[in-house]
Design a protein around this nucleic acid. Structure first.
Length: 477
RNA sequence: GGCGGCGUGGCCAAGUGGACUAAGGCACUGGUUUGCAAAACCAUGAUUCGUGGGUUCGAAUCCCACCGCCGCCUCCA
């Protein structure tokens, strides 16, 4: 049994995985900021966390998973000026910020369901944890990590010796970069806000420092501590979160607790579309719902976003999505065929060569994922299994059961097959046509059979013939 | 300017010093099968891993240079 290894952004190395508490894993994922519909890029990062979680569960760990919802806007820039995005959206759509947030939370949840993401144990919302944030800010002030200027509170980065360790930035480098407009209130240009006062802000709360709103890093520190404790195993996010967001979170959490906070940091690389960076101006910012409306299968979207390594830029294309549909169908087809072939059998015996290729595939699958979630390699093992299974001309009931159990086990991690749903939903009239065609074929009326097939094709379905006049109907791509 | 990543067959992608005479998927072509298709199976495709040097008995894998692409350096998954 190979050991589980993950690349840790903090150490910049692949490390052997050892949970803090045996058998248990605590996982925190940076979730959506709900001022717009989440897009495929956001979901690539969320799906990385989903894959990690499903794999750890596959390996028998009890996983506690928390994903925050950022429903309070961030400042646009560190000069602490400008509108925040949630409030901008609220003004644009002439709605209350919380209404805006709810709209996009719903959108996020819908898309997550379409992508067959396992729900987190809890989705804490920033606006419901203001008190926890205030408490943590107070602790940081008491410990000398933070200071108050008027109605604002800042974190003094020079008081935290590890600042910059995650991102590789040093205070000097950041100084040299100096894109930062110097805010004269701060002791150091790199200091970041923990609590801000701004009368223009719509969302405001009372605090010991006056009415205001929390800085945009404190929510993750406060909420993760509340739900997972002062130390936990994994923190995931997109690569852009590394700096400043996660760097600042470490300074806050470790500054407040004086304990090593997160054991493994995992960050997904950005997704590109047609070789270009995704952006609104290029019009290549797709949402999951849009792709489903375009007729792409939700499982194919999941497969596509998941099928390349999370530390690799993934290039999203419609051709790639088509390919993903084909690839999933190959596995689904195999399951169907195996069941069909074993239908008449009541033999529970399993030949040793069948056991052998099943075991080999499962071992290969598991070993690949143990290696820092090498999905591409894991998928190769799956397709070897499919190929071997397809080669069998006779399959006993026992063998079919073993093959399908293996594929189910694999899909508990991949989550792309809809095994319990049994494939596409087929309308009754299409089922009738298929049955008529079968009768036509039995009476060797090929012209009638072909005419019916054309009719079915025109309706957007495909009939695939099986041995003994059986058939499978599926939606056309 | 500082830091980091990538470039493998038509497309996606694994492999990071020796059984690589380079997985797997998609697409293509030929064959088997089929009433004809589809699906499935078999076969075929990189003398080669961005380009040029170098190290080594041996390099896709290490080093140097160059070219191209991507990310971070206080909005961003």
């Amino acid at each position: 049994m190979s050991e589980i290894k993950f690349y840790n952004t903090f150490s910049k190395q692949v490390e052997a995985f050892e949970p803090i508490e045996p058998g248990k894993v605590k996982l925190y994922s940076c979730g959506p900021t709900v001022y717009s519909h989440p897009h495929i890029g956001n979901f690539r990062s969320f799906l990385m966390a989903d894959l990690l979680k499903r794999f750890l569960e596959f390996k028998g760990f009890a996983v506690s998973h928390i994903m925050n919802i950022t429903d309070v806007g961030h400042l646009l820039d560190d000069a602490d000026e400008g509108a925040d995005k949630l409030e901008e959206a609220a003004r644009r759509e002439k709605k209350d910020p919380l209404q805006i947030a709810q709209t996009y939370i719903d959108s996020f949840m819908t898309a997550g369901k379409l992508l067959n993401m396992k729900p987190a144990d809890s989705y804490p919302r920033a606006t419901e944890h203001i008190q926890e944030m205030i408490d943590m800010v107070q602790t940081l002030i008491d410990k000398g990590h933070a200071y108050v200027v008027g109605h604002n509170v800042y974190y003094d980065v020079t008081t935290f010796k590890g600042y910059g360790k995650l991102s590789g930035n040093t205070l000097d480098d950041l100084n040299a970069g100096a894109r930062i407009e110097v805010n004269s209130e701060k002791r150091n240009p790199q200091d970041f806000a923990l609590w801000k006062h701004d009368p223009k802000h719509i969302q405001q709360w009372d605090s010991p420092w006056g009415r205001g709103f929390p800085g945009w890093h404190i929510e993750c520190s406060a909420m993760s501590t509340k739900y997972l404790g002062e130390q936990f195993d994994f923190h995931t996010g997109g690569e852009d979160n590394i700096f400043p967001h996660h760097e600042c979170e470490i300074a806050q959490s470790e500054g407040a607790s004086d304990k090593k906070w997160v054991k493994y940091w995992m960050h997904g690389r950005f997704l590109m579309v047609d070789g270009e960076k995704m952006s609104k101006s290029k019009g290549n910012l797709y949402t999951i719902q849009e792709l489903v409306e375009k007729g792409f299968k939700k499982n194919a979207i999941r497969y596509a976003l998941l099928s390349s390594h999370y530390r690799q830029n993934y290039n999203f294309t419609f051709d790639g999505l088509k390919g993903a549909e084909q690839a999933i169908d190959k596995i689904a087809q195999c399951v169907f065929t195996v069941k069909e072939k074993a239908k008449a059998s009541s033999d529970t015996a399993v030949r040793s060569e069948v056991t052998a290729f099943i075991d080999k595939a499962l071992a290969g699958f598991e070993e690949a994922l143990c290696d820092d979630l090498n999905v591409s390699k894991a998928l190769a093992a799956v397709f070897e299994l499919v190929k071997e299974a397809n080669k069998l001309s006779e399959i006993s009931a026992g063998e079919a059961g073993a093959i399908i159990a293996a594929i189910e086990k694999i899909d508990s991690v991949l989550g792309v097959l809809d095994l319990e749903a049994g494939g596409d939903e087929i309308p009754a009239e299409i089922m009738e046509l298929a049955e008529k065609r079968k009768q036509a074929k039995l009476s060797k009326d090929w012209a009638a059979a072909d005419a019916i097939r054309d009719q079915v094709t025109a309706a957007g379905y495909v009939i695939e013939d099986m041995p003994k006049h059986e058939y499978r109907i599926k939606k056309a791509d």
